[in-house]
Simulated scan of single mutants.
Amino acid sequence: MSFSDRLLERGEPIWDAQKNHPFVRELAAGTLDEEAFLHWVRQDYRYLLDYARVFSLAGAKANDEETMTHLLDVAHAVVDDELDLHREFAAEYGIDRDELERTRKAPTCVAYTNFLVRTAHEGSMAEISAAVYPCGQGYLDVARHMADAADGDHRYTPFIEKYSSDEFADAVAWMRDWVDRCGERYPGEREAMREAFLTSARLEHRFWEMAYAQETWDV
């Protein structure tokens, strides 16, 4: 069994919780409250800006040219492609780019992005690979689950199509291979990788809850 598969095996209860979360179930059915979806759009926009920074920092730490180039390409793709999708979602509801960029991160978004950025600054390449992996693999698996559960097209179909696409699956396959290479090359860091993976996976689950509850600061 590959190291990435062993991580997914450890994270299976978290994956099940994500797939069964009401945000995911209602988005698949097309019945999710519009405000909950827009809360996700705004918060995920802010999240992705830091996600791109993490890949940029990882690229700067890479020791080989191929890995460095790919990580920097991922950072560019997040900013150039994935954020465009969020801008399109937002525009359909009259939300412009300035409003997205002015959005204050909710507590869960702060916790998640702070964890990722700190790992990128202080952690090893192996830890970084494990920390970013749950976002990619989680969205692919959850979107495929939603695609299976969806009954026809609805207003959230573009979300499902984006994250269940072959293009996104190819991007996740590279991340999975990166995790496997790090796990094989740095066996002494596997426990740190497991902790980073599980922390991000738990925060992925909390992100759905944050959006569904439309979490904000109490004060």
Rank of each mutant, 00 (worst) to 15 (best):
V219L: 12
C182G: 05
V79R: 05
R53K: 15
S2R: 07
D170C: 05
E167G: 14
A52L: 13
E9C: 04
W208Q: 15
A211R: 10
V24K: 05
Q137K: 15
E215S: 09
A150N: 01
H154R: 06
G59C: 02
D80H: 12
K61C: 10
A196I: 05
E34K: 09
M193N: 08
H154D: 00
T119E: 06
F159A: 06
T199Y: 01
T69Y: 15
Y93Q: 12
I128T: 05
F37N: 00
V172T: 06
M68P: 06
C135Y: 03
V110G: 00
M1S: 05
G152D: 04
F89A: 05
L27F: 02
D33K: 08
Q214P: 08
W208R: 13
D141R: 06
V41T: 09
D151E: 15
A91K: 11
F55P: 07
R144I: 05
Y186F: 15
F89C: 10
E35I: 01
A52F: 07
G30F: 03
H76F: 11
A90T: 06
R155S: 05
Y47C: 07
L27R: 00
L49T: 11
V117F: 13
H145I: 02
D80M: 08
R53M: 14
M68W: 04
A60R: 12
A149Q: 02
T108G: 02
S165G: 13
S124H: 07
R53Y: 09
V132R: 03
D177C: 00
A147R: 14
W40Q: 00
R190H: 06
H154E: 03
Y156N: 03
F55K: 02
A169P: 07
E204P: 12
E215N: 09
Y156R: 03
T216R: 14
V117I: 11
A150R: 15
A17N: 07
S2L: 02
A90F: 12
E99C: 07
R6E: 15
E204T: 04
D177Q: 12
W178E: 10
M210W: 10
G94V: 06
E191H: 06
A28N: 04
F55I: 09
D166G: 14
E92W: 01
F37Y: 09
D177Y: 02
V74C: 01
K162N: 13
E66H: 14
E88Q: 11
A17E: 05
L71C: 04
E88C: 04
I95K: 02
E12G: 00
